[in-house]
Simulated scan of single mutants.
Amino acid sequence: MADPLQQITGSIVALVTPMDVDGAVDYDALDRLVEWHITEGTSAIVAMGTTGESATLDNDEHIAVVRRTVATAAGRIPVIAGTGANATAEAISLTRAAAECGADAALLVTPYYNKPPQEGLYRHYRAVAEAVDLPQILYNVPGRTGCDMQPATVARLAGIPNIIGLKEALADAGRVRELVSLGLPADFALYSGDDPTARDSMLAGFHGDISVVANVAPAAMARMCAAAVGGDAEAAAEADLPLAGLHKWLFVEPNPIPVKWALHEMGRIGSGIRLPLVPLSTDHHDALREALRTAGVLH
């Protein structure tokens, strides 16, 4: 297990995958985003998560985006590769490829659609961890997967040496308290996967936020997360206040539709997005544009 990875706290961006209008990956724009996040103080980058449209890139593209992100980061910031799948063999293959690309860790969403029971989840994650010697972060997002990994299963998996953390996106304060109180290993990290509740989760004991909002407001999210992880509730609330509109309007349609529109509006990426996702409805343009202005990232 890499020592630097154990120390990741704060704002971790769930990075979009920039695309041209025809849907082709724009690697030059990807490079610029990585450089921007390093400059703005983002703690780490997740490449090829949900926000990166992993569901609509084929395996070769998926691995190419991870490889390019790692190469551009060049060791200046940790890169975590999304490698989850609903087939254990595929998750192993993607995780092995991420390790070969030089990723610092993998983020593995719970198997989706096939709805495994808790024992199936345990065996799935154990199999990936035993097959690939790479630090691995569990990812629970039942609103997308139809599968909710319970805290007791997290506790079982936390005993596996290279399973080093959990991204929890249930957005439930009771779940946050339960996870914090589990007595997990000291080097096991808990990350929020829900921007609107991330500040409260970190003040309750989580170690950071794997964030969509950080795509458009990286410096502000870095400040807010640092304050919250440090237990400074007043400073965290002050930093979070201008981001309130983004916490709402970046999720008004399924992620990453709004955040890709926002980054295009900011001039940082092209307008491309892949079917079955479509561009943000014009009904929401004015409100999201105003939220970007309030956050100080659009003038």
Rank of each mutant, 00 (worst) to 15 (best):
A2V: 07
P4A: 13
I8G: 00
T9Q: 06
I12Q: 00
I12H: 00
L15F: 02
T17S: 12
P18F: 04
V21S: 10
A24W: 12
A24E: 14
D26L: 10
R32T: 05
E35C: 03
W36S: 03
H37I: 01
T39V: 13
T39A: 14
E40T: 04
E40F: 01
T42I: 03
I45H: 02
A47T: 08
T51K: 07
G52N: 04
S54A: 15
T56Y: 07
L57P: 08
N59W: 05
E61A: 13
A64C: 14
A64K: 14
V65C: 15
V66N: 02
R68G: 15
T69A: 10
T69L: 05
A74Y: 12
R76V: 14
I77W: 15
P78L: 10
I80A: 06
I80F: 15
G82E: 11
G82P: 09
A85I: 11
I92W: 11
I92M: 11
T95D: 04
R96E: 09
R96W: 06
A99E: 12
G102I: 02
A105L: 03
A105M: 03
L107Y: 04
L107Q: 00
T110S: 02
Y113F: 08
Y113H: 06
P116Q: 10
P116N: 08
G120K: 06
R123P: 02
Y125G: 07
Y125S: 05
A127L: 03
V128W: 12
A129H: 08
Q136R: 13
T145M: 03
T145L: 03
G146Y: 01
M149E: 01
P151G: 08
T153V: 01
A158D: 05
G159I: 06
P161E: 05
N162E: 06
N162Y: 11
I163R: 03
I164H: 04
L166G: 10
L166M: 11
D172C: 14
A173Q: 12
R177Q: 14
L179Q: 05
L179A: 04
S181F: 08
A186W: 15
G193K: 00
D194Q: 00
D195T: 00
G208V: 02
D209C: 06
V212H: 03
N215F: 12
V216W: 02
A219Y: 09
A220R: 08
C225H: 00
G231R: 10
G231A: 11
E234N: 14
A235L: 09
A237E: 15
L241Q: 14
L241H: 15
P254N: 12
L263S: 07
L263D: 05
E265P: 05
E265L: 01
R268E: 09
G272D: 07
L275T: 10
P276T: 07
P276W: 09
L280H: 06
L280S: 15
S281E: 10
A295H: 03
G296R: 01
